[in-house]
Design a protein around this nucleic acid. Sequence first.
DNA 1: TTCAATAGTTCAATAGTCTTGAACTTCGGA
DNA 2: TCCGAAGTTCAAGACTATTGAACTATTGAA
Lengths: 122, 122
Amino acid sequence: MRAIFLGVQRPFLHPPSETLRLESILYALADPVRLEIVRRLATGDCPLNCSTAAPAHLPKSTQSHHFQILREAGLVHSERRGTEVVNVLRLDEIEAKFPGVVSTILKAAKPLECPDAAKRGG
Amino acid sequence: MRAIFLGVQRPFLHPPSETLRLESILYALADPVRLEIVRRLATGDCPLNCSTAAPAHLPKSTQSHHFQILREAGLVHSERRGTEVVNVLRLDEIEAKFPGVVSTILKAAKPLECPDAAKRGG
DNA sequence: TTCAATAGTTCAATAGTCTTGAACTTCGGA
DNA sequence: TCCGAAGTTCAAGACTATTGAACTATTGAA
């Protein structure tokens, strides 16, 4: 027996840049997986769907959770395109509000070593 | 009845700068209380003991916990002086390893609004 | 030396968050 | 309409944070 399933796909919520909080951004970037996602979005220089941006060995539900945190922190803008979700970094907005913070972190961030790294020619 | 108390005061452990991790530093700074502690240590420009550096309304055990995380991340060096513990930011070491990261975050950080702020002439 | 005060640590319990498998939605193609 | 692909939602167990109470350690005074 299961409770009523509320799994309607709700539209993504993106905080306006006035409400961005430094702590939320740091928290989002403090996780190795999320830092890697943001790094790929930044260096790839193009929108990426969730499974391309996240380390491939991660369960989908975990990936989804990480993207939710990145969205809520205001780091990433997500949009459904057919069956997939394309993600774009909100770097300009964040740089305007917290100059240098994310770009400096990204410069210091090393690529994450993970099981799928070899497949990508790393 | 209580288990054997192991509360011997152990010496503080400070990670050498070679083992500092960006994620741990971001994690430590992602908490509003810890960001405020680091901000006070940076702007005060002098060593501060735990109760001076932390927001005053916080329980001691919580303060102690936050300083432990700051120490383990390598952000803070602590040393016992009599009954108190003096804390110094390890800013130079961190800047050498992750240039600009912490200094940029500190520039973007606003003072924390908290119950004891008024007492300090804020 | 004994006492009390001060500064901080440690422990334990509870509250909150993260990770992940399973069930589900939604879209697009055959 | 049926199927697969891409993500979301939910639930449960694992992990982490917060905090009161008990404790250690040092200092200064009597």
